[in-house]
Amino acid sequence: MNLADCRILLTGASGGIGEQLALQLAAAGAQLLLVARQRERLEPLVARYPERIEAVCADLTQYAGREAVVEAVRRRGGINLLINAAGVNRFGLFEQQSDETIAALLQLNVTATLQLTQALLPLLHQEEQAMVVNVGSTLGSIGYPGYAAYCASKFAVRGFSEALRRELADTPIKVLYVAPRATHTAMNDASVVAMNAELNSAMDTPAAVAAQVLEAIAHERKERYLGWPEKLFVRLNALLPRLVDRALRKQLPIIQRFARGQS
């Protein structure tokens, strides 16, 4: 897709990766409708590119919020690119997480993503060329200690992307699944950064992730896994999961220590 011709709905625009996606897409000439719960977090983006960016305040976990987004899309004359980047992460041992935390994570990461995509598909079908981009995670392919609920949500997003791509194979709508590795965003607090440093696990900048997402969109990829050796681990986990089991078993004491707040 030609980025300059894209009319985009971007969720999660107030987050690290989402903000960089908005900035880089606007710089490339795209028109954007940004979604966040708090409008003031989007105002700096709108002020920087007032001719390219519009913001809408909406809670995507609520029907009224999704309807407000769909109506905003209609007012702008439709979209040809939907980027589902909204999401939340929670690091910690699964047995110590509350019912409310688990439910809220799945509601935003999975349910709201599916429901918003479904609501916008009729508008995407009206375009000669369109794309849905779902931002997942390496942890959507590798179950990782300390991230059980988050892994469950991203495994679901990956499966949804694969199924939807096949379901829309005879339409002009393409589906791209992008899986970043650990990234320096507000979702990863100081304890996660410290743990990754002790484990020698690299973390990307949001700007670097966004640039690779734009490249995947421009070349109409179906999937894009970011980072090495994470891409190798994804393949190993699919083919030889016991090797990954053994590797993560060695890391488990460190992960447990940080997850229990004993760093």
Rank of each mutant, 00 (worst) to 15 (best):
V88F: 13
H184N: 12
G78N: 09
W228M: 08
Q38N: 11
G146F: 13
A247L: 12
R235M: 10
L214E: 02
H184C: 04
R37N: 09
W228N: 04
L21D: 00
P253L: 04
I8H: 01
T205K: 07
V193D: 10
L176F: 13
N80G: 03
L42F: 10
E223D: 13
P206K: 00
E215C: 00
V69Q: 03
A4E: 13
P253M: 05
Y63R: 00
A112W: 06
Q118I: 03
A218D: 02
R75C: 02
A202K: 15
R221T: 01
E223S: 04
L252R: 15
A190G: 03
A104F: 11
L124M: 13
A238F: 09
Y177E: 12
Y147L: 14
Y150M: 06
L42V: 01
P145S: 12
E40P: 03
A163L: 11
R7N: 11
L239N: 00
Q212L: 05
L33W: 03
K222G: 05
L252W: 13
I83P: 08
I17V: 11
L81D: 04
Q118E: 12
E215R: 12
F233N: 06
A26L: 05
L106N: 11
P145C: 12
Q38G: 06
P253R: 09
I17H: 00
I102A: 12
G65E: 13
R242S: 13
L199W: 09
E215N: 08
V132L: 15
G159P: 04
